[in-house]
């Protein structure tokens, strides 16, 4: 039977793997790793009553404003890249490029806010080895920040290479889908960190 619709325009009930199938080993692996890290964080938090006090005191010194601002930035950037992907599927390269640039700006904003936050913490004398809470706070957020930086690099690659006239080509769309999935991964890992490190009472 002839294929009626191209790879880039599919019906809603047709199932397909976004990006390259093997790539999902990486995504699921990252999810598993961060899931384990969340567990470790909570175990340390509740291990002894003294630990709970240290963690609660440490949490109170964090700025929820910066955390919330970062969450909004990442959520918005996720929305933008979804739109960019849709535009690319429709063959609308220039619009797609604008959306990916907006995504990039939001990601860059995240990095700036994070740097401000670190600078503020370091100025107030909270360092990597201040206590158990700050050890985990710095390491987890630095690891996440490394993911953001990797994601930004991938976004630059997208802006440079993937929004040309033939952006509907299935291979090209697969690359955009892969980077978009990675960017959503960065987003959802931050949601977890924000909930556990900043919001818990």
């Amino acid at each position: 039977m002839e294929q009626i619709y191209s790879n880039t325009e599919r019906r809603d009930d047709e199932r397909h793997v976004p990006g390259e199938p093997a790539f999902w080993i990486f995504i699921v692996g990252e999810m598993a790793m961060f899931g384990f890290m969340y567990l470790v964080f909570l175990c340390y938090r509740f291990w002894t009553p003294e630990n709970l006090l240290i963690f609660e005191a440490g949490q109170r010194t964090l700025s929820q404003f910066y955390g919330a601002l970062n969450t909004v930035l990442l959520l918005t950037s996720s929305w933008f890249i979804v739109l960019g992907l849709k535009a690319a599927r429709k063959g609308n390269a220039s619009e797609g490029k604008v959306f990916v640039k907006l995504t990039f700006m939001c990601g860059l904003g995240f990095v700036f806010v994070k740097v401000f936050e670190y600078a503020e913490k370091i100025q107030s004398g909270y360092l990597l080895n201040t206590d158990a809470f700050y050890q985990i706070y710095y390491m987890y957020t630095i690891l996440h920040l490394m993911h953001v930086l990797a994601g930004l690099t991938a976004l630059i690659y997208l802006i440079k290479n993937c929004f040309k006239d033939d952006c509907r080509d299935p291979n090209n769309v697969a690359i955009i889908e892969g980077v978009a999935s990675f960017w959503h991964l960065v987003d959802l890992l931050w949601i977890g960190l924000f909930t556990l490190i900043y919001l818990m009472v």
Binding site: F26, G29, M33, L128, N129, Q135, I136, M139, L143
Partner: peptide, 20 residues
Amino acid sequence: WATTGACLGCFVPLFKSGPL
């Protein structure tokens, strides 16, 4: 994935207790 996981091990010299 192995590389990103291994990043955590780079910080071992900084700590004498805790998860790292």
